[in-house]
Each structure stands twice: as C-alpha cells, then as structure tokens.
Design a protein around this nucleic acid. Structure first.
Length: 851
RNA sequence: GCCGAUGUGGCCCAACUUGGUAGAGGCGUUCGCCUUAAAAGCGAAAAGUUGAGAGUUCGAAUCUCUCCGUCGGCACCA
C-alpha cells in the first residue's frame, strides 16, 4: 500500500487480479444461495455514457453485497447489438453493420473493464451473432408451430424517416420512439405474435411481482393492456340480414342510443352501401378519414374535431325495438372493440359532442341515485329529447330511467343483467376487450434476425426446418436506406429451394424486431454456449428467475412487457416452470446536467451538449470516485444531477479513508483477534458502538437499495473514528482492536461501491489476496454492542418540548415518569396545575398533559 | 381531462414503513488553524412556519381530506 492514493494505479492492479483469478466467474452450486443480479444490456452505440455508469454501478454494488454475504451471484453482461444505428452507419460510411457493431462492442467492453464492474465475462452474449439469433429463429418456429405467430396484411405503424415498421408500443403517442418522427399508417404483410392471447395472464400474474416492482411500472403496463369489461350487442340493420356488433361498457345506457357509429374502415360499409344513393358521399368521407389519419400530426392533448356522415341505413335497437340511424364517424377506431359503437350522447362525452355537432336527439336514461327513486318508475319522459336540458353528458353510474322494464334498476345490476339477457336472446353477450394489440415483429431491415420462412409457389409459406438454422445474414448487401429490406436485393440470400418440394423458392427478407432479442437474453446468459438448445433447462432453473433487475424507466412498457410475455410462452413450451421472469425491478433515474447558460437541468445527451464523458472523469478522479459519487448523490430512482464538486467530495472521502488506513496499517495486524474480554476505554466503546450501529444500518439499507444513505453512514463512521481521538502512537491493544474492527467494517462495506480501493486497503490491513481472494464476508452487527448506554429522553408539556432527561435504555415506564416529573424544569410547568395524564413511550419520550 | 408519484436549511438529500427532540451525510457559504500568500488539508459555525389550509391525536414532516406547485404515464379505447 502506497502512502498516497493513486486511483489509476490501484484500479489497473486490481482489475488485473480479478481477471487472473476469475473471481467473478460462477457456476451453479447447490450449496450456496443463488442470486441473479441483472442490468439491462446496452445497445453498442460505441461509447458508455453516464446513464450506463449509473445503471451498472447500482447492479455492481448489489452484486458485491450479495457476494460478500456468501451468495453465488451471477452478474452477466451482453450486447443488444442488432438495430437501426448500425445500418445507418453502414449507409453513411459504407461498411458492414457487423464491422461497426463489433468495433463499438470492443471499445465499450474496454470501458466496462476500466470501470471495474464485476461481470462474468465468459457469459457475454451479443444479439447479432448467429449463435444467438439462431435461437430467436428457433423460438419463431416454435411459436409458428403453436399458432402463436401469424401473418396478415394490416395497417401498420410506419416511420417515414427510418422507413420501417414500428410496433404499437414503439409508436406510442403517434411518434416514433426512436427518432420522434410522426408515424404514418401503411398496409403491409406482416408477421405478428399473439401477445393478446396472454393479455389476461399479463394482468393476473402482476400479483406475483407487486411487491418487487415499482407501482408506476405496473400501472403503465395495466394501462397499456387496457382491459375493459362490457358487452357485445348486435343491432340488426333494417331491411337486410346484416347485423352490426358494437362493444359497450355501458349497456345500461342502451335505451339512450340515438345512433350507431361505425369506423371508416368498417367492412359492413362496402357491403351495405352498394346501391345506396348516399354511397359516394359515404365512401368519400371514409376515404378522407383514412387519409387524414395517415398523415395527421397529433400533438399530445389535441383531439381531432368529430366528424361524421349519415349512411341512410337504420339499425334496430334490440332492447327497445327503436330504429336509429347508422353513421360513419372519424372518432370510432376500427382497431378497438368491434369498430362500431352505439352513440349515447346523454351519458358519453364523445357521443355528446357528436350529437351536438349534428343536432341529434339526446335522451337521458340514467339518473343520479336519490332517495326518491320511485318517481322514475313511470318513465314520464320516455322518448323525450333532453338536448336543451343537458349542458353536458352525465357519465356517472346511477339508476335507469326511460328504459322500459329496466327502469328503476341500478347501473351495476342492469349492466350485468342486460348483457345476460342479450346472450339469452341471441343478440349479444358479456365481453371483455383489451387495448393491447398483437406484436408486429416484421422489420424491413437488414440488421436483425432473419425471419426463418420460405415462400414457395407450390407449397406456400414453409418454415425453415430446424436443422437448417440459423438462417444467416449475408456478408454483402447494398444499404440504400429505402423502404425495402436490403436483404431483398441479395440474390444469394433470397433465392433458395423449398424444403418441402425442392423447387426454387424465395426467402422472407424481413428481419425481426430487436425487442425479440432482448426478451430472453438473460436466460441465455445462464448457458451461453449451448449449441443444441436456447439453454439447458436445469441450469436455467438454478439461476432464474432474476432476483433483481435494474434499468431505465423508458422500458416500463415495451421491453418489460415483451419479456414477461416471452417468459409465459417459454413456460408453455416447457422450458421453464415459473410465470414471471423478474422478481424485483429497480428503475433508475436519469443523469442530468446543466445546459450551459440556461441553468436548466436536462438528461445528458449529445444534442443538448451537456454530456459528460465517463472516460474523462475516470482519468481525473478514478473509477471508484465516479462510482461512489453516482451512488451517493441521490436515491437510485431519482434524477441525478451531475456536479463536479460532488465528485470532488467523493474523492476527498476516499482519500481520508485511505489515509486513515495507511496511518494505522502497522499498528493493527498484530492485535489479537480475541480481545473482546478486555476492558475498553470510553472512546473505544463509543467507536465500537458506532461500528455495529453502522453495520446494522447499512445491511438494512442494502436490502432496500438505499445506497445513498449507506454511503452517508460510512462517512459518519469515518468521522466518528476521527473524533474518537484514538491514535496509533498512543493506542492500547483494546483501542487498536476497536479501530481495526471499525476500519475492517468500513473497508468491507465500501467494497460494493469502490471495489478497487477497498481491495487495496484490505491488503493494507494485513489480509493477503484482498477482499475477493481472501473470501472475506460482510460484517455482522452485534446488537449488544450497538446499543446505546445512555439515552436522552425529551420531556414534553402538552406536546411542546420543555426538558430533557437522561436514562439508561429500557428504563421502566414508571421510573421514566418519576424522573420526568421530578425534573426541575418540568416542575416549573406542573406546579400549581392539574396533571391530567402522563404519556410515557419507553426509550423515546415523556409527555405530561396539564390543565 | 384521467391516473400515479412528489414537495424538508442556498443545493442534492436523511428522518415518513412503525406519529414521539426537525437534521445524519455531501455540496455550497462564512469564520478559525496551517501558509509569506493562495490552494489543499484540518477545525468550527450559520441557515427551515417540513408547499398552503383543515382534520384526527396528549403529540403530525410522518396518518386523513382539500387546494397549489413540480415530474411522469395515458388520452377519442366506446
């Protein structure tokens, strides 16, 4: 141990020691408790940014903590290495995406190593390697076999800037999740995974992870799945054999329906409008709505004005027998429910707005529940128009009025009974719909896993036989950046023979969404080189599910929903036995920095010009200090404001710890370890108390992932050691014992945050081979030693602090009461007044209530 | 608009789970020591109506309600 703290020297040294010893390399071991610590794998953009550093510092701290507790910790890392930017780079620089990707990976891996993260690098996987994407393709075939994948022509979300398809999740809010361009609709033949089959399971199984996941992530997923219970009701179309099926959550309001409104894309339109004089008008309107939808720039908060056109058709309300007009409306979505709604303006805001615009009648059929329900029974106003008396829609539940025999029932009962009635009479049924759509995975891209199917003129769509996997990406392709997959122009890729009939055939040229790769990568980490299966079931059963997952909130819906789906699918094909992949989730906050000149804090980014390069920081302060600051500056879920002065504070602390260890290093190793029977000086006793209190506190903090307070506690312990007045020159054996105990605890508990300096100091304290090499364990708190010898008990008079008394811990209630009442200051408040009662909280306070 | 978080010294934050002395830690500020001087280092100090109001309670930063501010998600989903 040098006299001075040289971060660079220490860090290089221990990184080498760890690499040589393979100390972070683990294998299944039934004799130890297992812990899977997982951080979201990065996209290999080329450079580590502070967000990465934060993410992996958190995971590394937890890994070290569990390791020191004797767990068998798997802590792997890999690369989400398929995706757009590699292809953009290929276009721009005329190199193969693989070349660009692998250069980036090499650079970032080196950066990771420089940070000193404790990964088991033997388990590294990269999505773009055939060894990995072979299994993406294998899963595709498995799902195809089970009918979980299908192909359909459908309007898809199209990013005009990147010229590719986006999933619903990727085009949330009408903009591309990556580049922000306004998303358009296009009709394309696409492959879809039936995620909707699992909609209910995705909701139900949330109860298994409720305790370990942030509420807001679960809420976001619940909103996204968007379950809604109601009923389907069929409205016959007058003078035809057709029926229009609507979905409603408020069948109790059906007597108030003044129209049926269908989506512009509704299939019945073409069928029923033939021969109508209004045909052209309706068609023009529908075309206009569709066109508008394709290009409309929808700002958040902005709603399109409701528009519609009357088709001239009439639908018959199956409950009332009433004839109501059928309209086409721009506000009805074909993708949701049945693409048709019953319009009940009195009780739905959208329908109200629509009715106002076109002067349609408004009939009130729900009344607020009052104590005088009787009067509604007679339906005095049946058939009346309430458009003048209702200034806005009444959307609450209530009691039915103007609803024939159903009048007088409460909404709740009516909704249930009316749906059942519809079912019994063959014109409807109770129904549940979801907002969640099937997952469109086709991408018109080169840099992704090729979809393993072949199109044969004779045999149709033929899956690539398992033995022919992987379907490998070609070495050469032309990257033009136009809408078609570059694979389509690679003859040697496209042209093949049909596996069934051996005739010439063509390969699918679309590749898979990269979220496929990241849906199951952490299972592959468990058995990364398996050549005969995505992974060995037994090995995966040992390591998974993931105990703790750490990553950004931006993946709350997309990645985390897909991976939950994937897990259930793998369970159903027999690979695993549980429902949920991740027991605990931590979503770390952004790293922000001031935008020069504005005083505004924004997420670090190239475009905002407020990025801070981790390499540069390591160069100045060392990896340990960067990591310590990042863990200390804020709780992990919070935004972290980057402050150079903060990191200087971190270095200062490390230097002080280092200097302290250095100063004591020669006075400690020879002190006997069984000195506990000796008598300790007051200073030594105080220090020991602080040491054990700190151990207890930090252990607790770690379990709750409160790293910032752990570090604060370590700083306190060092301060206490400084304040103790103990010095190596004058310390007795028992003093030295207490100091060694404090320093050893301090160093060990610092290891998760600043492993390099901790290793160095641990050897300085006389342990050969360092923390990892010597098999050191997390210190254990001795409750007895942590207990205070004397407590200061506040005494309140009528709830106001008036005096303090001292007492030993666990002083009986009666004694405390007497001591408080005997106190001179207390008596000045109680003399001459009536003591109503005395509240004594043992070890905490006494409150005297006087009148 | 709906849903959910959150609001504590100048700043980042602790105490909120379990009501009991408002302050642990860091940054910044001021002062002292050290120094020819400065930096570093060491030592010390100042600073809050806990967003506002009400309720519950002997006692509220903590529990409940209302309002305000900030952040996030969703938003024609029938």
């Amino acid at each position: 141990m040098d006299e001075k703290y040289f971060p660079e020297k220490i860090e290089e040294k221990w990184q080498q020691v760890w690499a040589d010893s393979g100390g972070f390399e683990v294998e299944p071991d039934k004799s130890k408790p297992e812990f899977y610590c997982l951080e979201m794998l990065p996209y290999p953009s080329g450079f580590l940014h502070m967000g990465h550093v934060r993410n992996y510092s958190i995971g590394d701290a937890l890994s070290w903590y569990k390791r020191l507790q004797g767990c068998n910790v798997i802590h792997p890392m890999g690369w989400d290495s398929f995706g757009q930017p590699a292809e953009q780079a290929a276009i721009k620089r005329n190199i193969h995406p693989r070349e660009w990707t692998e250069e980036n990976i090499a650079h970032m891996r080196a950066q990771f190593k420089r940070m000193g993260f404790s990964f088991d690098w033997r388990r590294e996987v990269a999505a773009h390697t055939p060894e990995y994407y072979k299994w993406d393709q294998w899963f595709f075939l498995k799902m195809l076999e089970r009918g979980l994948i299908y192909r359909k022509n459908s309007p898809v979300n199209w990013c005009p800037k990147e010229e590719t398809v986006l999933s619903n999740e990727q085009s949330s809010g009408g903009v591309c999740w990556r580049c922000g361009a306004t998303v358009e609709k296009r009709d394309l033949e696409q492959w879809f995974i039936r995620t909707t089959d699992y909609a209910q399971a995705l909701l139900d199984d949330m109860q298994e992870i409720e305790r370990g996941w942030p509420e807001r992530v679960l809420t976001m997923q619940r909103n996204w799945i968007g379950k809604s219970s109601g009923a389907f009701i069929d409205f016959p179309i007058k003078d035809t054999d057709e029926r229009v099926r609507v979905f409603t959550t408020r069948v109790d309001t059906i007597y108030g329906a003044n129209a049926i409104v269908v989506a512009a894309e509704h299939p019945l339109l073409a069928k029923l409008m033939a021969g109508s004089v209004l045909k052209d008008q309706v068609e023009q309107f529908a075309a206009r709505v569709k066109a508008n939808r394709a290009v409309s720039v929808k700002q958040p908060g902005e709603e399109e004005a409701k528009e519609g056109v009357n088709t001239g058709l009439f639908a018959i309300n199956p409950f009332s027998g009433e004839q109501i007009p059928v309209w086409v409306g721009n506000y009805v979505l074909m993708e949701y429910g049945t693409g048709a709604v019953m319009s009940v303006p009195a009780h739905d805001e959208r329908d109200f707005e629509f009715a106002q615009k076109y002067s349609l009648p408004i009939r009130r059929v729900i009344a607020r529940v009052t104590h005088e329900q009787e009067q509604f029974r007679h339906d005095p106003e049946m058939g009346a128009d309430h458009s003048r008396t209702m200034p806005h829609a009444f959307t609450d539940y209530g009691v039915l009025i103007n609803s024939g025999n159903w009048s007088g029932k409460l909404s709740d009962a009516a909704m249930r009974e009316m749906a059942e009635y519809a079912q019994a009479h063959g014109f409807g049924e109770p129904a549940v719909t979801y907002r969640l759509r099937d997952w469109g995975i086709s991408r018109q891209r080169f840099w992704g896993a090729p979809i393993p199917v072949i199109y044969c003129a004779a045999c149709g769509i033929v899956p690539v036989p398992e033995k022919d996997l992987p379907v490998v990406l070609p070495e050469r392709a032309e990257f033009t950046g136009t809408g078609q997959s570059p694979l389509a122009n690679v003859a040697e890729f496209v042209n093949t023979t049909c596996p069934k009939c051996n005739e010439p055939a063509r390969r699918e040229t679309d590749t898979m969404d990269t979220f496929v790769d990241s849906s199951w990568y952490f299972f592959r980490y468990c058995d990364p080189r398996n050549q005969s299966a995505p992974f060995d079931k037994d090995v995966v059963a040992y390591w998974t599910p993931v105990d703790q997952y750490i990553g950004g909130i931006e993946h709350a819906v997309m990645h985390l929903l897909y991976t939950r789906f994937w897990t259930k699918m793998m369970r159903d094909i027999g690979l695993i036995k549980f429902n949920e992949p991740v027991m605990k989730l931590l979503t770390q906050g952004m790293v922000t920095n001031v935008i020069a000149g504005t005083g505004e804090w924004k997420a670090m980014s190239k475009s905002a010009g407020n990025g801070v390069d981790p390499d540069e920081m390591i160069g100045i302060y060392g990896a340990d200090a960067v990591r310590l600051f990042i863990m200390f500056a804020a709780p992990p879920e919070n935004e972290l404001r980057w402050q150079e002065t903060g990191i200087e504070g971190a270095v200062r602390f490390l230097r002080r710890v280092y200097n302290t260890v250095y100063r004591w290093r020669e006075s400690l190793p020879d002190v006997p370890r069984d000195a506990t029977t000796e008598t300790f000086s007051d200073a030594a006793r105080r220090l020991r108390r602080k040491t054990h209190q700190t151990i207890a506190r930090i252990t607790d903090d770690f379990e709750q992932l409160h790293f910032n307070t752990s570090i604060a506690a370590l700083m306190e312990l060092l301060n206490e050691l400084g304040d103790s007045g103990l010095a190596p020159e004058s310390a007795s054996a028992s003093d030295a014992f207490a100091v060694r105990e404090a320093l050893e605890a301090l160093v060990l508990m610092l290891t998760p945050f600043t492993p390099h300096i901790a290793e160095e100091m641990w050897t300085g304290l006389g342990h050969t081979n360092g923390v990892l090499g010597s098999g050191a364990r997390w210190p254990a708190a001795d409750e007895e030693l942590a207990r205070k010898e004397e407590l200061e008990i506040p005494v309140q008079i009528n709830g106001k602090l008036r005096a303090r008394i001292t007492a030993a811990p666990d002083t009986p209630e009666e004694t405390l009461r007497a001591a408080a009442l005997a106190d001179e200051r207390v008596r000045s408040y109680t003399d001459g007044r009536e003591i109503v009662k005395v509240i004594v909280v043992p070890n905490r306070l006494v409150n005297v209530v006087v009148r």
